[in-house]
Design a protein around this nucleic acid. Sequence first.
DNA 1: AATTAATTGCAAATAATTCGCGTTTACATT
DNA 2: AATGTAAACGCGAATTATTTGCAATTAATT
Lengths: 138, 138
Amino acid sequence: MNATDFRKLLHAKSYKATPSRLAMLALLSRVTKPLSVPDIRKRLGGKHYDQATVYRTLLMLKKMGIVKQIDFQHGMSYYELSARGDHHHVICTTCERIEDVQECCVVGMDSLVLQQSGFAEITQHSLEFFGICKRCKA
Amino acid sequence: MNATDFRKLLHAKSYKATPSRLAMLALLSRVTKPLSVPDIRKRLGGKHYDQATVYRTLLMLKKMGIVKQIDFQHGMSYYELSARGDHHHVICTTCERIEDVQECCVVGMDSLVLQQSGFAEITQHSLEFFGICKRCKA
DNA sequence: AATTAATTGCAAATAATTCGCGTTTACATT
DNA sequence: AATGTAAACGCGAATTATTTGCAATTAATT
């Protein structure tokens, strides 16, 4: 995904392709870990973007299904591209360590959830594991 | 689990069995849905307990592994007894509807996560589905 | 009943997220 | 390329969840 793709993505839903949006999409697709709002603002090059803008953009991207909001129980939300694929996280409750979990057992669960619930559509899911990493255990 | 059991649970870790703690445990074990802090305070009988007390107690119970913190992306945390068993939730992103999901595909994942990660122990996991309920779809 | 450390309530601090509004900007149209 | 317009932005302030410090209270031990 390059800048041109991002423009198309936004235009497809008649959103404007503004510098802040393109920068955020570029950042999120370049990165391999979920980012918090402060993370995003720090890493958005030299440019300063207002926090309200970042929050508003994330909300928009979330509604579009492009980003996923994740809770590490660290007092704020983290965000990553849905396009990064179906993976999960392990969070150390002692330090701040976070690792990806590649195996996804949730594939196929969506239809099961639809069956047994009063829901018409599943758009996302999030699976996080909490525990203690080896370093903290020692 | 009755009041006597709760007392033992607390004393086992040398915590005091105070009225607020017993009331919270009783409430959480009587209820079938995760509760937010305002929920808890409202439903704690006539008694008024300070929010700081409720937050501190929840933190303690979480550390003890007795309660589980859950994120519905509603701007605050929800809590339920771990003893309610391994189930998950579907959250409607349009209204506030929440349903339980009984099938758990995550059983056994813990050991897998331990294998492929630098973690020594998994204490909890949380799996939430987000989507649109039938009522909102219509 | 007395002692003591843990727990509470209160009030204030902190920190994430949202909101209102005047100004700026992307982009469609000319 | 210039123009019109709704969308998006930045700013500052408001809101709201959560945490903290401290003096007063209380559970549990003696």
